[in-house]
Amino acid sequence: MIIGGNETVLVQGITGKQGTFWSERMRDYGTKVIGGVNPRRAGERHLHLPVWASAQDAAKDQKIDAAVMFVPPFGVKEAALDIIAAGVRKIVCLTEHVPVQDTMYFLAAARERGAQVIGPNTAGLVTTGVNFVGFMPAFNARVFQKGDIGVISRSGSLGTLLCLNLVQAGLGISSFIGIGGDPIIGTTTRDALVALDKDPATKAVALVGEIGGAMEEAAADYAATMRKPVAAFIAGAASPPGKKMGHAGAIVMGNRGSYAGKKAALEEAGVTVCATPNEVPGVLKARLKR
């Protein structure tokens, strides 16, 4: 989903420790990793793949459909603008702690060029059995089995738990869309819900939200129009207001972003809101039988 099985992927920061580790796993899983970018090591080969000085250089040699960034926070804006200038249409930004004004800047540049950004602060995307982009344990058979549930999550760790719970219950995952835990992100909960609604491989959706912001409320408007069942878990019911709970976006200010508000909006839209992630598979099974 979002990044198709035949689409090529460029890795910004491929030579770093995490870039290397996850590029190998992505490639082993089936992702079409074509190489990477590191200005200081242009012309070398890494993991038997070419290294370019920039995405724009890479685009002269190869067709690039998507790019994923293993780049430190203050380097993200420049790397993203390079990818956008190279004409890449899909950008996955994994980095946490990107200054929000930098994010807004490259999101605006991406909008102008018609590029889709996933993240920042996302664990990435998985199309089970086809490819993955980011750092999700797609290759772990206890977490990912092919099936027909689409999963949306702001959090990588919680998304992983939810996928695992689905597999433990005998269900499987069509696609996982990690949207990221930052307050401003390129692909919202609603965008991800629309994508899974249109996806023929997805029959039902597990939506993992968090306190803070208004993305779950916006997604609820769309969920009300869907025929596919949606079950949700919203993290943060026990979190005190006014404190950032790990994610920069996970903070309740006044009434805005509260658990109660999100639960009410989703339930009004016909979404079943579960008390713990472990309850999600049972709810989806029951709703799919109806």
Partner: peptide, 17 residues
């Protein structure tokens, strides 16, 4: 003690639940 903001919040939620 948990890893990831989402999972840590969820662990707290489940304790309360």
């Amino acid at each position: 003690l948990a890893n990831g903001a989402g999972l840590t919040m969820t662990t707290m939620d489940a304790i309360r639940h």
